[in-house]
Design a protein around this nucleic acid. Structure first.
Lengths: 153, 153
DNA sequence: CCGTTATAGTTTCAGATGAAACCATTTGCA
DNA sequence: TGCAAATGGTTTCATCTGAAACTATAACGG
């Protein structure tokens, strides 16, 4: 943590933000810390990026999605998804065929190799999540769930 | 192949993550949504990036910091800070002098022009924060505060 | 003092990113 | 039908990013 410093602003008429109490900033720091810890886990073991992992996670849950649907479910943009898919298909972790009715769409799914990686990474991700939640008691966990639901809606 | 897509995974032995209930993922989406909304505000009005705004916000609060101290307080890396400072100083929004005792350190602060931008952006950022918090009732706001404190510690 | 090590900050390089242009296919509708 | 608009997906381009190398100054140990 930073050392002590001149606490007050020069002139009283300005109203500087206090980042350490500013919700958007706190969420950003917290989120980046947690996501980075998980990413470190799987980047060390498998050669895989955050975007690639998100694509794999969603294909593990929903088989046969198109690229656009993957983008929707991961909240990533379609360029990022396209590139992640190129790498994943190239590495034999995801299979891609063309939709028989609509030749624009691809039909995506994990391959056996993809499942092996998934089954290794998913428990690590869950363990990290548990590590975070362990800092809260049962009440707090319930409230957090509820608060996130409301903020997202 | 069964009827439509979107069903459960093929084999029951896999345990796919449910991203929509996975805390790290939800935090990431929420945080990005909020931060992006604020960034849109000030990028439309002033030509300023997220990193630049963070540097300005912290200098508004703590005058005379060095670049390293800014990096600490913003949780950004020193390369990002260095580059943001180069642009800010170039644009006359931040002043930079050399520390009289230690010629390696810089001594940073907002200029008048910097303060004008700060005083325009800070209220917009606060308004966005209020908009988010307005989705919660008083109880929930208290719990959120408490939960963030515990998760960060 | 002098050499080693540590620190502040910048530059370089190589990869990631997103907006917009692009191609192919499908859909809407006159 | 036929053609404009919409959609799925990829490529391009310009920017952003962080790790590691680098420069300059300061601190430390003998």
């Amino acid at each position: 943590m930073p050392a002590k410093r001149k606490p007050a602003p020069a002139t009283a008429e300005h109203a500087p933000l206090q980042l350490e109490h500013f919700l958007p900033y706190r969420l950003s720091v917290l989120s980046n810390t947690i996501s980075q810890a998980i990413a470190d886990d799987y980047q060390r073991l498998h050669d895989i990026s955050v975007t690639e992992w998100r694509v794999m996670a969603v294909l593990a849950r929903f088989d046969g999605l198109s690229a656009r649907e993957v983008a929707e479910r991961t909240a990533m943009d379609k360029v990022a998804v396209s590139r992640a898919l190129a790498r994943l298909v190239g590495a034999g972790r995801v299979s891609r065929t063309t939709h028989h009715d609509d030749k624009r769409r691809s039909v995506l799914g994990l391959t056996e190799a993809g499942w092996i990686i998934h089954d290794d990474v998913a428990p690590m991700a869950r363990a990290r999540e548990r590590g975070v939640l362990a800092k809260l008691d049962a009440d707090e966990r319930v409230w957090l769930e509820r608060i996130l639901d409301k903020l997202q809606g």
